[in-house]
Simulated assay, not measured.
Amino acid sequence: MNTTFNITKYHFRDFRKAIMIFYAIILTLGLFMGYATNQNPNSSFSGFGGITVIFLFILALNSFKPNFKFMLANNISRRRQFWGYMLTIATLSFMITIVEVILNNFFMRIGNYHSMFYQIFQENHVFKDLVWTFSYFSFAIALGLVVTMIYYRCNKMMQFVVSLVPVFLIFMQIMIHRITNGRGLDSINNILRIIGEVHSALGGYTFSVVSFLLGTILLCGACFLLIRKMPIKE
């Protein structure tokens, strides 16, 4: 257990500077936007939650390769590293969630700010905000970790292929739209509409939290499968 905690502490030493710089920028932008909205009562500002998710995803993308080789060199097993990453995901998500909710409430006091939670659910409820944001951030970090593990395991050709996947998906979407005269995208919209109806029927908030938590668990399972026989690469 001590090894797992030490791995998490090591990760946080890596994250510390990036997190401090990120929130210094967010706080500066928030103060500026809060002042601007006070000067114009009809205006508002938002979007910091989305920026934070992207930041956490990128943070996870850059957390695996150097740490993996360093820890193996110090006789820390892959299994121990896995549990260290799991504790890191939970701890980082919780800490950033607390900071995010505090900043959201601060920005709402100094200006006309709308958090991501408010924009989606049209309510300000601190506990619900905490739970939803934690689940959302956990999913983003776990997704970033899985992506970087897959990328690390691939050879150079497969890394190139993985990098082209977003471009390929966009190209396929355009081709389907042209070939079917828009009917293909109508089918996708119908599927999304059904998902939206299920979302509403089950309760939007509860469905979102459960979906993100289940997604995080599945991604963590993928992390375990990827790391247990992970090769060592330069």
Rank of each mutant, 00 (worst) to 15 (best):
M1I: 15
N2Y: 10
I7G: 02
R13I: 09
R13C: 04
R13W: 05
D14F: 04
Y23C: 07
I26P: 08
L31Q: 11
F32Y: 14
M33G: 04
Y35M: 05
Q39G: 00
P41N: 01
P41D: 01
S46D: 11
T52F: 01
F55C: 09
L61F: 11
N74H: 09
N74C: 00
R78H: 13
M86A: 12
M86G: 14
I89V: 14
A90N: 03
I98D: 03
V99H: 01
V99P: 02
N104S: 11
N104W: 02
F106K: 02
F107G: 02
F107N: 05
M108A: 12
I110Y: 14
H114C: 00
S115E: 07
M116G: 08
Q119C: 06
Q119F: 11
E123N: 06
N124E: 15
H125P: 00
V126T: 15
Y136R: 12
A140C: 08
I141P: 06
I150P: 00
Y151N: 12
Y152M: 11
N155I: 02
M157G: 05
S163F: 14
V165A: 14
P166T: 11
L169Y: 13
R178N: 15
R178D: 15
I179D: 07
T180F: 08
T180E: 02
N190W: 04
N190P: 00
G196Y: 05
E197G: 10
S200I: 11
S200N: 12
G204H: 05
F212E: 02
F212N: 06
L213S: 14
L213K: 07
C220F: 11
C223P: 06
I227A: 12
R228G: 10
